[in-house]
Simulated assay, not measured.
Amino acid sequence: MGRLTGGDPSLLRRINSAVVLHALRAATAAGSGDGSRTPGAATLTDLTRVTGLSRPTVEGVIDGLIGSGLAVDVPAEEGGVRRQGRPARRFRFRAEAGHLLGIEIGPHRVAALLSDLDGRALGSTVREVSEKASADERLERVRGSVADLLRRAGVARHSLRAVGVGSPGVVEDDGSVHLCTALPGWTGLRLGERLRRSFRCPVLVENDANTAAVAEHWKGAALGSDDVVFVLAGLSPGAGSLIGGRLHRGFGGAAGEIGALHLLGREATPEEVLSTTGEPLNPLDEAQVAGVFARAREGDARARAAVDRFVRRLVHDVAALVLALDPEVVVVGGWAAGLAGMLEPLREELARYCLRPPHVALSLLGEAAVSTGALRLALDHVEAELFAVEGTVTARRAGP
């Protein structure tokens, strides 16, 4: 990297700090590999070579990072063989200097995932909650779950640097829920604001299918693919998509709401599609829905017809999104993804209707997809702060 000179000195210092921190973090994660350096550490010479900055500049930045707790001297004895003379100073990035949370808030459960500043998981928790619980009850369950997780991990609440949250519904930029039919009292809820009161750190709220799409792209079935559609399959399916590796939310955060496509043709509602009695199903009663699939496998004619309707509806909804976005990969998650016979009909029908059929895969993260994606949102925010060069970062839905 070429040496930077001139311009605003304070801006130059921030740029130098971001460059050195980025190099130190990469060296810490990569380790040695050649036996010449302490694994997970870097010398001033290493950092000078990688950044192209002068040695005094790098040393000044490192001292500042040590003062802020983001870097630490590595004792010479950790380097293995001792050489004669004064050993070179070695440093590592302190991933333990702060912590991140990824939270899922769903109809039947809340889940939380805790990590360090490198995104390494340190613990997780899952607690059941009634689909009839009020917004206050659900949020209290979230707070209790997080408190228990932090206590078990030995992590202080004030060390949290950011919290990501995945929630059903159309989520606005400020973390408010514009519309949600899955959770009682959720429409109009200022979710981000409510949670910021508890955590006293940036809180990033996103639609659950969107966070799951981010998760599968990070460490799931869409790893290595930048054009991705994630389908949260259920009675009223939702979808999240990444275009060119970036989450696509749409103008108002409602991109991917494929569960509303039936309204275009005024067809049966999602609750009626799987009904075998003429009475709508409760869309949140997963056991009732699973029972229809079980009877279909046993040969019940009405149940088989209902399942066929469900599969056709899901294929129709997903195909519309695939034709519009042309993804490389479609990842199917949600409770319906685990039902027998779901994936192959989807592959076959997408091959019929789509000009270039995508690869169709089952979620690798399963029930952990939403909390994992929420954690990635928190990590993205902190990385933007750590490597910012303008002094401040204004994160979408992050708050003060």
Rank of each mutant, 00 (worst) to 15 (best):
L101K: 03
L284M: 09
F293T: 02
T394R: 15
E286R: 14
A41E: 00
A260D: 13
S176A: 11
A26M: 10
E390Q: 07
A361I: 10
A153G: 05
A369R: 02
E271T: 14
G33C: 07
L189P: 04
A121E: 15
H108T: 08
V142C: 07
E172M: 13
D116I: 10
V146D: 00
V171C: 10
R37A: 07
A71H: 04
D227V: 02
R127G: 05
E257D: 14
S176V: 04
L321R: 12
S167F: 02
L346D: 01
G185T: 07
P358E: 08
A182M: 13
R89Q: 09
I243R: 10
A395D: 09
P39K: 12
R266D: 07
S363L: 13
A41P: 01
R143Y: 09
L70D: 08
L101M: 06
N210V: 06
A319V: 02
F93K: 04
V382L: 14
Q288W: 04
R127H: 11
D34R: 10
L117S: 11
V292E: 01
V163W: 01
V126K: 06
S176M: 07
R397T: 01
D34I: 07
S130C: 10
K132I: 11
P327W: 02
A182K: 10
P345A: 04
A337E: 12
L364P: 08
V231Q: 03
L339E: 15
V126S: 07
R312E: 11
S10A: 15
S225K: 11
L70Q: 07
G299V: 01
L122F: 08
R109Y: 02
G366L: 08
R89N: 03
S236Q: 15
R297H: 11
V311H: 12
A18E: 07
A320N: 05
L261Y: 14
E257C: 13
P283L: 15
G338Q: 12
D227Y: 04
D46V: 08
H99S: 11
F230M: 09
V393L: 12
P184V: 03
V292M: 03
F251A: 07
G106P: 00
E59R: 14
V214T: 04
V289D: 03
T125N: 11
L346F: 06
A239P: 00
A121L: 08
L139K: 05
L100G: 00
R246P: 02
A95I: 07
V72K: 15
P202Y: 05
L183P: 00
P75I: 10
